[in-house]
Amino acid sequence: MGKKVSRRQFLTYTLGSTAGFLASGMLFPMVRFAVDPVLKKGGSAKYVDVNLPISQITQEPKAVQFVIHRKDGWYEPENGESLTAWVMKDESGNVRALSPVCKHLGCTVNWNSNPQYKNQFFCPCHFGRYEKDGTNVPGTPPTKPLDKYKTKIANGRLLIGPVES
């Protein structure tokens, strides 16, 4: 015959098993939260035609609106999400598209909107300033440059993709 289990051992095993079961129930959502982004299929980076011929892009920043379709959690707008980009050519003729979202607190920056700061992007919320290339002016609230969108040219038209990482 096998070894008998004492009452104390039985109680220890029962309480240990119950505690382990409850702990796993609490830890599972945390582990899933951490692992889900890694296991999720990567969406292909889609480029959007912004209906702007390359011939109309100059060195002066121009606000361009475009619509993307993406799911944010459980919410997916039926008509897509409207975004804006500041589009321009740099000194070497390359097309650049910058996000208008200030890196300080998420307000919208505008080009040449403050007469005090000519040829700069200006954030009216906390007086943040950016140079034409999107870099932040030292000594102003933003600590990072504006996000840059990936760009492509197809059939003489500008396509804007996701934010560069």
Rank of each mutant, 00 (worst) to 15 (best):
G2R: 13
G2M: 13
K3Y: 14
V5H: 01
R7E: 09
F10M: 08
F10P: 04
L11M: 11
T12Q: 14
T12I: 15
T12G: 07
Y13I: 15
T14K: 09
L15E: 03
F21A: 15
F21G: 10
L22A: 08
S24W: 13
G25W: 01
M26D: 08
P29H: 05
V31T: 12
V31M: 13
V31K: 09
F33N: 11
A34S: 10
D36V: 14
V38N: 10
K41R: 14
G42L: 11
G43E: 14
A45M: 11
K46N: 14
Y47A: 02
V48D: 03
D49P: 05
N51V: 13
L52E: 03
L52F: 01
Q56R: 13
T58V: 04
T58H: 07
E60Y: 09
K62A: 10
K62I: 09
F66Q: 05
F66A: 00
R70K: 14
K71H: 06
G73T: 07
W74M: 14
W74L: 15
Y75T: 12
Y75A: 13
E76P: 03
P77I: 04
P77E: 00
N79K: 13
G80E: 03
S82Q: 09
L83Q: 05
A85I: 07
V87F: 07
K89W: 00
D90Y: 03
V95F: 04
V101L: 07
K103M: 12
H104F: 01
H104L: 02
L105Y: 01
T108F: 07
W111V: 01
N114D: 10
N114W: 00
N114Q: 08
P115T: 08
P115L: 02
Q116L: 15
K118Q: 14
K118E: 12
C123T: 09
P124G: 03
P124D: 07
H126R: 12
F127A: 15
G128Y: 01
Y130K: 02
E131N: 15
E131L: 13
G134W: 07
T135R: 07
P141A: 10
P142R: 06
P142S: 03
P142A: 06
P142L: 00
K144I: 09
P145Y: 04
D147T: 04
K148S: 06
K148G: 02
T151I: 08
K152L: 08
A154E: 14
A154R: 11
A154T: 11
L158I: 01
L158Y: 05
L158V: 02
L159N: 03
I160S: 00
G161A: 00
G161N: 01
P162F: 08
E164V: 12
S165H: 14
S165N: 15
